[in-house]
């Protein structure tokens, strides 16, 4: 087994996903297959190889840090599932 039931529960919790029992069983099989396959890279001796952080083609070009026009508050809120007086609204965070 490349991934255990306890491990899958732990990563699901980290990723903020909840899994049903049958979903979990299928994922154990599918992720197990995928992880077994990607372990193929262990056949290579990589001790002397540097890690590529990205495609390593060009340096990242940062623009000057200056204020420019962006979204208006209305635009920023237009897709909010719940809003209240110009703010995003969420279930109560602070317990009494």
């Amino acid at each position: 087994m490349y991934i255990s039931s306890a491990e899958i529960e732990k990563i699901a919790q980290l990723a903020k996903l909840k899994l049903g029992q049958s979903e979990k069983q299928e994922l154990l099989r599918q992720l197990g297959d995928i992880i077994a396959y990607v372990e193929k890279i262990n056949q290579l001796d990589l001790s002397q190889v540097p890690a590529a952080d990205s495609a390593d083609i060009e340096p990242v070009n940062l623009r000057q840090d200056k204020i420019e026009a962006g979204l208006t508050p209305q635009q920023a809120l237009m897709n909010a599932p719940a809003k209240n007086k110009g703010f995003f609204s969420v279930p109560k965070v602070i317990k009494k």
Partner: peptide, 29 residues
């Protein structure tokens, strides 16, 4: 969901070096 879980797994403590870091090295090759 499958890919989010796989990605969380390969980045998680104890697996990062074995999977993600090694994959970046293969990318270099």
């Amino acid at each position: 969901k499958r890919r989010i879980l796989l990605g969380t797994f390969v980045l998680s403590s104890g697996y990062y070096e074995n999977y993600y870091r090694r994959a970046q090295k293969v990318r270099h090759l």
